[in-house]
């Protein structure tokens, strides 16, 4: 019982100190996510054709793994019409671009052929370029937790 009370106090303290994420609608989150992807794609030459993949948002949970009802909006696009030989250059270009735009580079795995991965973060959104085992590339962007059409009614 004492441990339970301690845990509850700890969570309350973390919640109080952590601040709240910006209030954002689902539409705003989608617009931002799309913006990050298209903005990154325009940095590449030749410009890729963006082919959307089935969107499937991610349920947000609390630290006890209980769903909060919010979701991270995520969008995922294949980068078509680009030669795989250019993959290393594409990763370097995006690393340079995101760095100069003051994005925080979270994970940088650019040195593993056919398994490259680069993820950056900006104002609660994350954007990554990911390489498949056959050399195909994807741009993936994700929002912070927001209420969406999938959220239960008692938001």
């Amino acid at each position: 019982m004492k441990r339970r009370a301690t845990a509850a106090i700890l969570i309350a303290l973390i919640a109080a100190c952590g601040g709240s994420e910006p209030a954002m609608t689902e539409e705003e989150a989608i617009a931002q996510v799309e913006h990050h992807i298209h903005d990154a794609a325009t940095q590449l030459h030749p410009p890729p054709r963006l082919e959307p993949l089935r969107p499937l948002d991610i349920p947000c949970v609390d630290r006890y793994d209980q769903a909060t009802g919010q979701f991270r909006v995520e969008r995922d696009y294949w980068l078509r019409d680009i030669p795989t030989e250019d993959n290393q250059d594409i990763f370097n270009t995006l690393h340079h671009y995101w760095t100069t735009q003051n994005y925080e580079i979270k994970h940088d795995i650019r040195e593993e052929p056919n398994a490259r991965f680069l993820e950056a973060q900006h104002e609660g959104f994350s954007i990554s370029v990911q390489e498949s085992t056959n050399g195909m590339l994807r741009l993936v962007a994700q929002s912070p937790c927001v209420w969406t059409a999938e959220s239960p009614d008692q938001r």
């Binding site: 947000c60 949970v61 609390d62 630290r63 979270k106 990554s128």
Partner: peptide
């Protein structure tokens, strides 16, 4: 590696994280 950025969802951050 998984993600290390979200102190409020630490026990369940493994599917939100792209890495």
């Amino acid at each position: 590696r998984s993600d290390n950025s979200n102190p409020l969802a630490g026990h369940s951050d493994y599917w939100e994280s792209q890495l």
